[in-house]
C-alpha cells in the first residue's frame, strides 16, 4: 500500500469519508444552524478552522504528549481554538454571532474534532494531518451548505438572502423549524445512498 498523498488526504473528507453524509457525525450543528446557506457556510468554515488548527497543533505535539493525558490535552487544544473562533466571529459580525448562537461554543463537543485528533493527527506528521483535517472541514461545510440551501430556498424563497421567487412566494415554515432539518438531512442521505448503490452496481457489472 502506498502512502496517500496530501491531496488524497484532502479528498478523503470531502467525498469518501464525508463527515455528514457518510460518517453521520456532528449532527448537532447540522440540524440546528442550517436554516440558511450563509449560516451553514459560516458554521462549516468555523469548524474547518478549528479542525485544521487543532490537528496541526496536536500533530506537532504528538511526541511530547504521553498517552495517559492525551484526551485532556486534545480537548484543551480544541477548546482553545473554539474560543479563538468565538472571539473572531464577535469581531467580524455580531449578527452572525447571534444567528449561530450557542452552536459556536458547541463546536468543542463536535465529535468530528476529537475523532480527527485521536484517529489521524496523533499518528501523522503535521502536513498530512492538516490536509486531512481541512478536507474533513470542507466536507462538513459542503454537507451543511447542501442542507442549508434546500432549507433556505424552501423555507424563505431565498438563497444567500437574495429573493428567488418574488414577494408572493409561500414559505414552507416547517423547513426553518427543527423538523425541516431532519427531513432535508434524510433526503440528502437517501440521495447519497442511492448514488453509492448505483456506483457499486456499475462496478460489479464490469467484468474484471
Amino acid at each position: 500500500m502506498s502512502v496517500p498523498s496530501n491531496f488524497d488526504e484532502f479528498l478523503d473528507g470531502i467525498w469518501k469519508q464525508n463527515p455528514i453524509f457518510v460518517m453521520v457525525l456532528g449532527m448537532c450543528p447540522t440540524l440546528a444552524v442550517t436554516v440558511s446557506a450563509v449560516n451553514a457556510i459560516s458554521m462549516g468554515l468555523a469548524t474547518t478552522f478549528v479542525l485544521g488548527a487543532s490537528c496541526l497543533l496536536v500533530s506537532l505535539l504528538r511526541h511530547a504528549i504521553p498517552k495517559q493525558v492525551r484526551i485532556a490535552s486534545y480537548i484543551l487544544i480544541i477548546a482553545t481554538f473554539v474560543t479563538v473562533v468565538d472571539y473572531a466571529i464577535q469581531a467580524i459580525s455580531l449578527d452572525l454571532y447571534e444567528a449561530l448562537g450557542a452552536y459556536i461554543k458547541l463546536i468543542v463537543a463536535n465529535c468530528i474534532l476529537l475523532g480527527r485528533a485521536e484517529a489521524h493527527a496523533a499518528k501523522n506528521p503535521p502536513l498530512p494531518a492538516t490536509f486531512n483535517a481541512i478536507g474533513m472541514g470542507f466536507g462538513f461545510t459542503l454537507g451543511l451548505f447542501a442542507i442549508g440551501c434546500v432549507r433556505e430556498i424552501l423555507g424563505a424563497g431565498k438563497l444567500f438572502g437574495i429573493s428567488l421567487f418574488g414577494e408572493h412566494f409561500q414559505p414552507w415554515v416547517v423547513m426553518v423549524l427543527p423538523p425541516g432539518g431532519f427531513f432535508v438531512l434524510a433526503g440528502w442521505l437517501i440521495v447519497f445512498a442511492a448514488f453509492e448503490q448505483y456506483k457499486s452496481k456499475r462496478i460489479q457489472g464490469v467484468p474484471s
Binding site: L57, L61, A64, I65, P66, V69, A72, S73, L76, I77, A79, T80, F81, T83, V84, Y87, A88, Q90, A91, I92
Partner: peptide, 25 residues
Amino acid sequence: RALGLVSVICGIIIVGIYQFTLPAA
C-alpha cells in the same frame, strides 16, 4: 510537563486573540 506545555500554549493563544479582537468586538 506535557499538560503544562499544552496549557501554556493554549493560554497564550487565548489571551492573544482576546486582546486582538476586543476593540473590533
